[in-house]
Write a protein that binds this DNA or RNA. Structure first.
Lengths: 153, 153
DNA sequence: TTTACTGCAAATATTTTGCAATATC
DNA sequence: GATATTGCAAAATATTTGCAGTAAA
């Protein structure tokens, strides 16, 4: 990510904390900084590990607390594709793609497609102010389809 | 739901079980029958309660097992809108709408809209065979927007 | 100085698993 | 008759909560 973009998002966080009268703690900024290093989806464990690797220890409670704040601030989005793991992603990244999920093996692929996003932006919805959207397309990935055809279903 | 539709879906289940060499147990059919009585989203607890109310007891293990089969069979879809509750819905119902989720209060509203679903159907995606899609639009519901404006943000 | 935030550990909630009994094929 | 499926209870996992100490405003 470009330094400029990072600074911009960091400022958004600062603005949000100020607006909500929340404190600007080192933990919150460190967590956000580490999140920015992920190129795609991440979960709580990965984030915790990433912080430990950088010799920065935070409790699970603080992690969860901060993630909620970041979601509310609109800086990250939450994905819950399978039952077990809740994943997050920088909102900035999520806005550029939709998700293809294999119903067989669970593999998730990202697909850049602007038309659908534009369609959503153009939707006129009564009594609702859209902020962003998540689109998940379920189906068969090529590997699983091939495997099924070979085994005769 | 119409009796004809129910019979059709029941037959799909039978076909799926046969294809996968899974057994046609009374529990599986009773669970599916009870699911069909829900007009919208439901979770594991609601389903369990519904079965108990009809004097039909099944273990949680069987419930989870059967729900997974029904998802794999394409008869129901899984929604994980907030962290806490995993919800399910008849695929047939889910296909007719998309979800508006308030980022403030968490309220979920269903919106019937065929254009987006059609757009998705028309998408040409390499190395992927779509089966169905879930679209979630996050934003502010009218109540929360009104409340925010009154409180001056 | 006030009190929001943090870390830790315990509590909670949900889903999974092991195993003996049972029912399907 | 062989074995997939069930129920039950225990185990595993993820997230939340209570509380005392710490740090931001």
């Amino acid at each position: 990510m470009e330094a400029k973009e990072y600074t911009e998002m960091r400022n958004l966080l600062t603005g949000y904390l100020a607006e909500k009268k929340l404190r600007r703690t080192e933990e919150r900024y460190m967590i956000f900084q580490n999140i920015c290093s992920f190129p795609g989806h991440f979960d709580v464990c990965m984030l915790h590990q990433q912080l430990e690797d950088n010799n920065y220890h935070v409790s699970k409670a603080t992690l969860y607390n901060t993630l909620e704040i970041l979601v509310d601030a609109g800086l990250i989005v939450r994905h819950q594709i399978n039952t077990k793991i809740v994943q997050y992603e920088l909102r900035k990244l999520a806005d550029t793609h939709l998700h293809l999920i294999c119903t067989k093996c669970g593999a998730v692929r990202e697909l850049r497609d602007s038309t659908l996003k534009t369609d959503v932006d153009n939707l006129k919805i009564a009594r609702f102010t859209p902020e962003y959207c998540s689109l998940y397309i379920y189906g068969l990935c090529s590997k699983c389809k091939y495997r099924m055809q070979r085994s005769g279903r």
